[in-house]
């Protein structure tokens, strides 16, 4: 072929109805079976009638549980018996008749944005609800110019730095070797929200191999680094096209929805036009942080 070319990169436990049941007891019980998980400044209430599951969530999202009570979205969780469903199965996310339908091998969920409510049907494990939360956040962020990015992120001197890359690129490594003055936001999935002046990175409870939750704080994003392990520490410039392709390749997005796909595509370009992006080659030890300030 001459000259022509293109590249493909490509709730409810039934309430005990007992007339002699003290009201104060009921109120206490309900309050104990609900919690608000706030990630990226977006509070999501989760309702369950299972105390053990609630405790599991409180532990899983420690640091991200908001006691204020207000929530932008509310989910009722119906627990099902454990099953060996495949957590690696493809996620399906579709929008029909005003509702998002989310499913994977180990859960089914629906969310009606206009009502700000939904339900999740899953067994008592943290992985399914974790997936639902990630998906819901991507859907909300896509309409606001933000996104979830497959990257580590951290704050140093009031500025946030993102470290993107595929598995084994070094996200967990660079997080593990961070000096004490660095606040870790995540070693796996970064939360990026558009602001009036640029972009903010928020801490997330979404962890990688480090297994340590990020701090629930945020800061303006200074630089996005594309990670590569090497024999020396160096920062190299990259073209805007390469930056955009790499950013798009590391975005988390699940919905089969043309409008949101297009919105996310344009958000990537906007991000690259506002935030410096560079390649960071590093030796896997703490010295790489001498370049990041």
């Amino acid at each position: 072929m001459w000259l022509w070319a293109y590249t493909v990169f490509a709730r409810v436990q039934k309430g005990k109805h007992r007339s002699d049941f003290p009201l104060s007891h009921l109120v206490t019980e309900v309050a104990h079976l609900s919690l608000v998980i706030e990630i990226g400044g977006m509070p999501v209430r989760v309702n369950t009638f299972d105390p053990a599951f609630l405790e599991l969530l409180e532990r899983r999202y420690s640091g991200f549980v908001n006691d204020s009570g207000d929530a932008e979205i509310e989910f009722d969780v119906e627990l099902t018996p454990p099953n060996p469903a495949d957590r690696d199965a493809d996620v399906e996310v579709k929008y029909r008749f005003g509702r998002w339908s989310l499913s994977r091998g180990d859960f089914r969920a629906e969310w009606e944005p206009s009502a700000r409510r939904g339900w999740i049907r899953q067994s008592a494990n943290p992985y399914a609800i974790d997936a639902v939360l990630r998906i819901v956040h991507t859907l909300v962020l896509a309409r606001q110019g933000g996104f979830l990015l497959h990257s580590a992120s951290a704050i140093r001197n009031g500025k946030a730095f993102l470290f993107a890359g595929v598995s084994e690129a070094g996200k967990t490594t660079i997080s593990r070797v961070a000096p004490p003055d660095v606040t870790l936001l995540t070693d796996e999935i970064s939360y990026v929200r558009k602001s009036a002046d640029g972009y903010l990175a928020f801490g997330t409870p979404f962890t990688g191999e480090l297994g340590k939750l990020g701090e629930n704080v945020s800061a303006p994003i200074s630089t996005l680094y594309l990670l590569a392990k090497g024999h020396e520490n160096r920062i190299e410039p990259i073209t805007p096209g390469e930056a955009t392709r790499s950013l798009l390749a590391n975005l988390l997005f699940f919905a089969e929805d043309e409008a949101l796909i297009q919105a996310t595509f344009h958000s990537a370009f906007d991000f690259v036009s506002r935030v410096p992006v560079a390649k960071l080659t590093f030796v896997p030890d703490a010295r790489v942080w001498e370049l990041i300030a």
Binding site: A5, A10, R245, L248, E258, I261, Q262
Partner: peptide, 16 residues
């Protein structure tokens, strides 16, 4: 750069 709204595939076109 072109992204398919159907399956999120990214295409990059050369000059011609």
């Amino acid at each position: 750069m072109i992204m398919s709204g159907r399956d999120s595939t990214l295409f990059t076109l050369n000059k011609t």
